[in-house]
């Protein structure tokens, strides 16, 4: 046995990351560091990140292309909003109820949708989102239709009230980290492996005792709960919801987030979500051409880096490690020769 080194490069790296995270957590919401507007953008980015994380379980780990993320996020948002405005519930409680309802809803819907496979599942998930959006836009008594629900009370969890963007930033930050760690852990469990085996080949998965159908349904539930959480937080953060951000087009954006960041990486979901929320803000000078460039950009992205940004980084690391190994080997051979 080798003696254990305490400060391996890996651990040093982890410490650095932790310091960056803590620094961001403390510094960004301080008054005067970023403008109120940009803080709102960051908060939105964190909310999108939570929803995207759920999708990364389905798409990255399970290989299922779903267009339901935004729709189910809407379910969470509307349940939270309706309970807290129409029935005067506490918002914290409303979000929890929304999560439970979201889990049950995704389970039942998942059971139905996963009777289809591959592309046909994707078709049906579009149907689901459209169905939900139709309900959001037309059930006037509950959802106020296309005008949306206004004056949703701020989040209140009893001992703490979240009223400004700064406090929301901290809250969202913590929730996002918890969700992130959850997904990271999931990758290491038998469920993560089961999901990965389903993605690569369902027959192989089944011959290793994996119930493909239920495994996919569970992934849909996980994605659904994450989306509902994001939806509930979206509602209390913005204070206003309309059907607009829960439409099919938005679902497509979540897919692109994952693909941009890197489909095999949990951190990629963060990269993708933050890039796709911040880039539009920084690219305002492109005006009307922005979306065209964005669309073309997606195609180019798929052609040149199908595994996303993290894919490129991993590739680079892989090559570097390979080079180091080779160098070591050649050194060893040289010393032997000497």
């Amino acid at each position: 046995m080798k003696k254990k080194k305490i400060l391996t490069p890996k651990i040093i790296g982890k410490i650095i990351v932790a310091i960056i995270i803590i620094a961001a957590f403390i510094i960004i919401p301080l008054p005067g560091v970023v403008s109120r507007y940009m803080l709102k953008v960051y908060n939105d980015g964190l909310i999108y990140f939570i929803a995207a994380l759920g999708l990364s379980v389905m798409l990255g780990m399970g290989g299922q292309v779903t267009y339901s993320t935004a729709g189910i996020m809407g379910v969470g948002a509307y349940i939270t909003a309706i309970l807290s405005t129409k029935y005067g519930w506490n918002t914290g409680l409303a979000i929890i109820v929304a999560l439970i309802a979201g889990a049950i809803f995704s389970f039942v819907v998942g059971l139905a949708l996963f009777r289809l496979k591959g592309s046909y599942f994707s078709f049906a998930s579009i149907g689901l989102t459209n169905l939900l959006v139709t309900i959001f836009s037309n059930w006037m008594e509950m959802t106020e239709g296309p005008d949306g629900i206004t004056r949703i009370p701020k989040l209140d969890v009893g001992f703490m009230k979240f009223t400004d963007f700064n406090s929301y930033f901290r809250l969202l930050f913590i929730i996002a980290i918890i969700c992130y760690l959850f997904v990271l852990r999931l990758r290491k469990t038998s469920y993560g492996r089961a999901l990965a085996s389903v993605r690569d080949n369902e027959i192989t998965a089944a011959s290793f005792g994996v119930n493909c159908y239920m495994t996919k349904v569970y992934s849909f539930v996980i994605a659904g709960v994450f989306a509902c959480l994001a939806g509930g937080l979206y509602a209390v953060h913005a204070g206003f919801i309309s059907p607009e951000p829960f439409k099919y087009d938005q679902s497509a954006i979540y897919l692109i987030m994952i693909m941009l960041g890197g489909v095999d990486s949990t951190f990629g979901a963060f990269l993708g979500a933050s890039l796709l929320t911040i880039i539009p803000e920084k690219m305002r000078w492109l005006n009307e051409y922005y979306k065209l460039i964005y669309g073309v950009g997606v195609i180019i992205l798929m052609i040149f880096m199908p595994m996303g940004l993290m894919g490129i980084i991993d590739n680079f690391k892989y090559k570097m490690i390979g080079k180091i190994k080779k160098r070591k080997q050649s050194n060893a051979i040289e010393t032997e020769a000497n």
Partner: peptide, 14 residues
């Protein structure tokens, strides 16, 4: 999936 996403990009661009 890459092809699927690329068609999504195309739909936005178009």
């Amino acid at each position: 999936v890459t092809v699927v996403i690329s068609t999504l990009g195309a739909s936005i661009a178009l």
